Amino acid sequence: MVATSDNNSQINISWNAVGGATSYNVYKSQNPDTGYEKIRTTTETFYQDKDVQPGIRYYYKIIAVQSGVESAFSD
């Protein structure tokens, strides 16, 4: 997964496709170890998070979904 910011108003997240995945759940936290909340379900391998504040560090994890079953968190 790659996360970049072009400015202080959004973070662009992209990841590699997982074979057989029908969608991906995007999770976000301000703590790298806990507190992840699902912010989006998408069929794409990218997401633009526009709900960000300057000066705050965000952490993301992606979960592949196949036939309604989630994989483990990405690293």
Rank of each mutant, 00 (worst) to 15 (best):
M1P: 02
V2C: 02
V2H: 00
A3F: 06
T4C: 00
S5R: 12
S5V: 12
S5K: 05
N7S: 15
S9P: 10
Q10R: 07
Q10I: 01
Q10P: 00
I11K: 14
I13E: 01
I13Y: 00
I13M: 01
S14A: 10
S14Y: 07
W15G: 01
N16P: 06
A17D: 00
G19S: 14
G20Q: 15
A21E: 13
T22M: 11
S23F: 11
Y24H: 06
Y24A: 11
Y24L: 09
Y27W: 11
Y27P: 01
Y27K: 02
S29E: 07
Q30P: 03
Q30Y: 09
Q30E: 03
N31Y: 01
N31G: 10
N31D: 14
P32E: 07
D33Y: 02
G35P: 04
G35M: 04
G35R: 07
G35T: 02
Y36L: 11
Y36S: 13
E37D: 15
E37W: 03
E37N: 10
K38C: 13
K38W: 01
K38P: 05
I39T: 05
I39Y: 04
I39E: 06
T42N: 15
T43C: 10
E44W: 14
E44C: 07
E44T: 04
T45Y: 07
T45M: 05
Y47L: 02
Q48W: 11
Q48S: 04
D49N: 03
K50T: 12
V52I: 07
Q53F: 00
Q53V: 07
Q53G: 00
Q53S: 13
Q53L: 12
P54S: 13
P54V: 13
P54H: 06
P54W: 11
P54T: 15
G55W: 02
G55E: 04
I56V: 12
R57P: 07
R57F: 00
Y58W: 02
Y58P: 04
Y59W: 08
Y59V: 11
Y59M: 13
Y60G: 00
I62Q: 07
I63G: 00
A64W: 08
S67A: 12
G68Q: 05
G68V: 03
G68M: 15
V69K: 15
E70N: 12
S71I: 14
S71M: 08
A72V: 04
A72I: 06
F73C: 10
F73Y: 15
S74W: 05
S74E: 08
S74N: 04
S74L: 10
D75R: 02
D75P: 02
